[in-house]
Design a protein around this nucleic acid. Structure first.
Lengths: 254, 254
DNA sequence: ACAGGCAGATAAGTATGACAATATTGGGCG
DNA sequence: CGCCCAATATTGTCATACTTATCTGCCTGT
């Protein structure tokens, strides 16, 4: 009965808005988010069978076309798999594409767990450390300039949103300078982590933290400028670890 | 005119077969692979607009349902974005989900470039090094046992396929022991890299290389057993770098 | 009693034609 | 000359019918 047409929007919208991604509001995306969240939140257990088409059709009051396209989207992200006569099965989590922006967003909708933020920080450390090191080896002068500019904008930011945006720009610039397409491809992940972290606590509100965060990022940029891979690695590790520590401290402490 | 029903299958099938993944053969997956490959191969340039539904319908001789589900799948993987009245646009590569198994497979269909293999090795180094370090900190005794068993099976493998399978098992076991769900989620990537590498040159055929490869993997397992993160990091880096070097050397050097 | 295949039932896959929503483009009106 | 609106092209949604795959269980032949 709670299926009134205009229910509250997903937290994913915040992230989409921040990133300038389109958030077209079509029926199929409604169904998609509903089902995606239901699966990620465990409402449909891994390995279980979803209700058959007919039942879902009745529940969502949409056409078969819409439902099936939503399910196909979930299948494309590795959440489900359909088989004739059996039904549509929820796949085990290790088949899910956790690097997908939507799948990540659904995870955040059930409240960012500290353990999840930590997992995120760990992958970021792995990938972005290498990206920084590669950038230090391969950067062009042009790319180095962009990095320094991004740091300057971080230092000058006045609102948490501004800061987060420029922070993201910085990390994207590092990924680009690495010359490795995979590095650039995980910006969705970085974006989610940064958004989550800054939703919890932004350095902008704590002058001391702001100065330190900017300093660490400037150290990364400098190491890349100096073509110093090892220095870039270490600085990047500190930047990510500190960002996570601040958010985690804020969540547990207080 | 070349749209005869039973044309040669994609190289992706090899990988799917090796991984035991299902390869259902429905219409929509035909269209999906055709279009996916066309986009990845640059046949449809980034930022360009795909032909309208009507034209694609005519080209593939399928129903609108099938075509649209295939396009929705591509959209879910970040390759395209449809907008009313505008058409369906090919997104820039940095929006593509390169960690998706299908997208990866399409990249390999146009012949594995050395530069692409290198990019793959670089991300693997980033992620798997951290996974190994985390595994060294968090492993259970049970997980350690599985690791050693996988190494033993690698040493005893007699065919390239067997070796690749056990190698993959090993890397999956490390990812599992890390306790980080993201690490486990990239096994598709590792799988692709290993399959590609061993298609080019398997250590099984070179006794010396086999001994060395097994030794390095045993070193990883031992470091994790000893709860020695730094040792695990270094051994993992060597394992991946050597694997890539062997394949690359075989491709360029002859 | 058992093996094997044959048929029914169920759920996903495919087809088709019509209509709605949306955004660009160009023309008409102030 | 500029603004607004309508024509138009393209994707989005709907409803219904039919096809294919495959699991279950009966049924037959040995």
């Amino acid at each position: 009965m709670d299926r009134s047409g205009g229910r509250a929007r997903h937290s994913g919208d915040l992230i989409a808005a921040l990133s300038g991604r389109n958030l077209a509001h079509n029926l199929h995306s409604d169904v998609l988010w509903d089902m995606g969240f239901a699966i990620v939140s465990g409402q449909y257990a891994q390995g279980s069978i979803l209700p058959p088409d007919t039942e879902l059709l009745d529940r969502f009051r949409v056409s078969r076309t819409v439902l099936r396209e939503a399910l196909k989207t979930l299948a494309a992200k590795g959440l489900i798999e359909a088989r004739a006569r059996i039904g549509t099965r929820v796949l085990p989590r290790n088949r899910w594409n956790l690097f997908d922006a939507d799948v990540l967003a659904w995870h955040f909708e059930l409240g960012p767990e500290v353990s999840f933020l930590q997992s995120l920080a760990e992958v970021r450390i792995g990938i972005e450390i290498e990206a920084a090191a590669l950038a230090a080896e391969r950067r062009t002068d042009e790319q180095a300039k962009l990095l320094l500019a991004a740091v300057d904008r971080m230092a000058a930011a006045s609102t948490p949103e501004d800061f987060a945006r420029h922070d993201l720009d910085f990390h994207k610039a590092v990924a680009n300078a690495s010359g490795n397409p995979f590095m650039a491809s995980i910006s969705a992940l970085v974006e989610m982590a940064l958004t989550a972290a800054f939703t919890i606590s932004s350095p902008v509100n704590e002058p001391e933290a702001l100065i330190q965060t900017v300093a660490v990022h400037r150290a990364i940029a400098q190491a890349i400028l100096d073509k110093n891979p090892q220095g870039a690695r270490e600085a990047m590790r500190i930047a990510i670890a500190e960002g996570f520590a601040r958010a985690a401290g804020r969540m547990e402490g207080v």
